[in-house]
Design a binder for these strands. Structure first.
Length: 546
RNA sequence: GGCCUGUUCGUCAAGUGGUUAAGACACCGCCCUUUCACGGCGGGUUCACGGGUUCGAAUCCCGUACAGGUCACCA
């Protein structure tokens, strides 16, 4: 077989040579040890936790080593392309502060190692494909979908391995004349790799997460170029990551199974293998068993969910970091205020087993993140979230910024800050009673307080509250009121001898609390009243009395 | 079904032949406390199972079970 003639027959339009292309991708000028990674999503516009998961690995690996992070768009499958998908991807990564150094941008692309859209690289792939044909390492296959299905059915019936290999690789040894006839007749073909692999033999690859993994050699003649001349993922991966000089390929472990083929391809091309980082899958508990997070069943898979619910970006990143590197939590405990990027991320600390996504843990991380924020930060995050997702609330929050800030300042700062908010959507139920528009009191008073006592407490307190009091004076007044009506002002006395009192100062406080806030739980009443002001407090007391 | 990967408290996990098998989340109890939140203290048959190797195994080896992944002209 004259492979050169075959190559010309198959790719008459390709006149560039591999060397010409290689020349356009000179070595990168990077410091010693710098890593080049890439995020390579399909432009579906759907961004999920898994994307973020591996993006963070890519980003850390690259930027921690003064390397390069690129964004390459894998648009080889038209079915997976959505209008505006690329913009969504870029926007979301931007929100998560994952900056790309080169690759696709909102309005095109930048960087010297492009094009970064795979569809625009068709000629590049075809050039290397043609070269493979010349080397006798690839050949055209004219099988229809029906024929392929028939092969598969036969193999299933015979319990043989499924696929295009050995005697099932019907076009592997087609003659030049047979091929020419098909081409002349205008038949479309896919280009298949001519595998020399022997499944009896085993091969080893090192993965930075999984360690050394061992496989039988690949014997399948897999598709390199689809009938439209666009490469499959496999071929695009090998060509692109070689040319772009990716040093670390980070991807989900669902790719582990095709790794033998990728290794084989790199060898066939005579190229150096990148390092592989196969990340384990995010799982979720469903009933009694673990399963992969699913787009259809689990809203929390979509990154949009976090935005809508009002999780803040650093919290989500922190949480993912705890899953990614098991020593991150210890580091965070030791460095509570340090920037996330100061943490030294390593692939060695990545878990080989799949982690269960735990929203409780996320909430906890998130509460910590928010509790460490300043009032200004909280105000700014909360209002911008509300502006988009709860405009009515936003109006209230921004009507009097100083007022809102003083609410947000309760219990903030200091060694033991309050942790009331895990998400911005928690804010409204937490602080709604501060706004008359949202005030829907539930006047459930302590059961041991009689209606008459309640009336007395509220009526008396109407005269007692003085905003000028300090915290101790403020509480002394309540204690005095308790004494006055036969309630214990001292808890210890009360506990010693409960029968001697009608109740205790806690009950008195609770009556006031319920009247003022319309609920039994609230932050510190002294601060709450201070913020509401004398007039509003009086108004609330009267409303409760009525 | 073939191939691959994984399995340490409910969850995330530390662990590299000798540890009372860390820590965090969740849960329960107690303490602190005028409520809540915070904080403190305490709690739970945790090394999938069965064999080896070894003075000694969560750790090494071999099986088994279970879970997940993969077997497209999708990525």
């Amino acid at each position: 077989m004259d492979y050169n003639a075959l190559a010309e027959l198959l790719f008459p339009q390709i006149q560039t040579t591999p060397a010409e292309i290689e020349a356009k991708y000179p070595p990168r000028n990077l410091p010693e040890g710098a890593k080049v990674t890439r995020m390579a999503p399909s432009p579906t516009g759907f961004m999920h936790l898994g994307n973020l998961f591996s993006a963070i690995v890519d980003e850390r690996l690259a930027h921690q080593s003064n390397g390069v992070l690129c964004l390459r768009i894998e648009d080889t499958d038209l079915k997976r392309s959505v209008e505006g998908g690329v913009q969504t991807i870029i926007r979301v990564f931007h929100e998560y502060e994952l900056g790309f150094d080169e690759g696709a941008t909102a309005d095109g692309e930048s960087g010297a190692y492009g094009p970064y859209y795979q569809r625009q690289r068709a000629e590049i792939y075809q050039t290397f494909a043609k070269w493979l044909v010349q080397q006798g390492k690839a050949y055209p296959c004219f099988c229809s979908e029906e024929e392929l299905n028939a092969i598969r059915e036969k193999q299933t019936a015979l319990k043989e391995n499924i696929g295009y290999y050995g005697k099932y690789a019907v076009y592997r040894d087609a003659s030049f004349e047979q091929i020419k006839e098909k081409i002349d007749a205008g038949e479309r073909f896919v280009l298949r790799f001519r595998s020399e692999g022997n499944p009896e033999k085993r091969m080893k690859v090192n993965d930075l997460v999984k360690g050394t993994v061992e496989f039988p050699e690949n014997e399948q003649d897999l598709v390199l170029l689809k009938s439209d001349g666009i490469p499959t993922y496999h071929f695009a991966h090998v060509v692109d990551d070689h040319l772009m000089q990716t040093t670390h390929v980070v991807r989900g472990e669902e790719w582990l199974a095709t790794l033998p083929f990728h290794v084989q391809l790199f060898q066939a091309m005579g190229w150096k293998l990148p390092k592989y980082v196969h990340t384990s899958q995010l799982m979720k508990m469903d009933g009694g068993s673990k399963r992969k997070l699913s787009k259809r069943k689990d809203p929390e898979l979509a990154l949009d969910f976090y935005k809508q619910t009002g999780y803040c970006v650093p919290a989500v990143k922190e949480y993912i970091m705890t899953l990614l590197n098991s020593n991150f939590e210890d580091w965070r405990l030791a460095n509570p205020t340090a920037d996330l990027n100061e943490f030294k991320f390593t692939t060695q600390k990545m878990s080989a087993s799949g982690s269960l996504f735990d929203i409780d843990k996320l909430n906890d991380v998130s509460k910590n993140v928010i509790s460490r924020m300043s009032v200004d930060q909280v105000y700014s995050h909360l209002t911008s979230w509300a502006e988009q997702f709860d405009p009515e609330f936003h109006k209230l929050l921004t009507r009097d910024p100083a007022y809102t800030r003083s609410i947000l300042a309760i219990g903030r700062g200091g060694k033991k800050p309050r942790k009331d908010l895990a998400t911005w959507s928690d804010a409204k139920p937490y602080m709604d009673f501060f706004f008359d528009e949202l005030f829907q009191p539930d006047y459930s008073y302590p059961e041991n307080v009689t209606e008459a006592d309640k009336q007395t407490i509220l009526t008396r307190y109407l005269d007692l509250y003085d905003p000028a009091d300090d915290n101790a004076q403020w509480f002394d007044r309540i204690k005095a009121l308790a004494d006055e009506i036969g309630y214990a002002s001292n808890m210890k006395d009360y506990k010693k001898n409960p029968e001697a009192f009608r109740g205790n100062v806690g009950d008195v406080s609770m009556v006031i609390r319920v009247a003022v806030t319309g609920r039994q739980n609230s932050p510190d009443m002294y601060e709450v009243m201070g913020i509401l002001g004398k007039e509003k407090v009086a108004e609330r007391l009267k409303k409760a009395l009525a």
